[in-house]
Amino acid sequence: MKKRLIMQIGLVVLLIVISIFLYRIGKGFQLIVENKNYTLGDVVYEAEGPVRVTFDDEIQLDLKKNRADLAILVGYGKHKIKVEVLDNNGNTIRTVEKTFSLSGKEGDLVSIPALLNGSDKWIFRRNVT
C-alpha cells in the first residue's frame, strides 16, 4: 500500500516535471527581426539587402533593405540564426551563422546589420541590459 502511494506521488511529480519540460520546449516567443540602419553608440551599421534569415533551420524570412518582420521561435534555450545576404538574382553572397538565447519575454529584437558587421550587441533583449 505504501509502495503504491509512493508510486502515485511519483507519477504526479513526473507529470509536473513533464509539464515544465513541455512548457519550456513549447513556449513560443515573438522576435522582431530588423534589417534597418542600426545605431549603437556612435557606430552606425548600414543595412544590406535583401537578406534571407533562417531560424533553427525551420523558420525562414526574406527581408529587403530597411524592412522588419516578426518570427515566432519555439522553446527556451539556444537558437540558431543563419543570415544569407543575397544578390539581386537571389544568389547567396555570404552567410553568417550564430547561436543565441532569448530573454524569455516577448519582443526581443534582432538587428541584421549589426549581426553582419560583427557587433556583439546584435540582439536587444527585453529587460535585460
Binding site: 513533464i18 509539464s19 513541455l22 512548457y23 513549447g26 513556449k27 513560443g28 516567443f29 515566432i72 519555439v74
Partner: peptide, 19 residues
C-alpha cells in the same frame, strides 16, 4: 491557458491535456 501562455505545437497540446 496554453494559448495565453503561447505554448505551441504538440507540447502545447500535451500540456493542455495535462492541465
Amino acid at each position: 491557458l496554453i494559448t495565453d501562455w503561447k505554448i505551441l505545437g504538440i507540447p502545447g497540446m500535451a500540456l493542455a491535456a495535462i492541465i
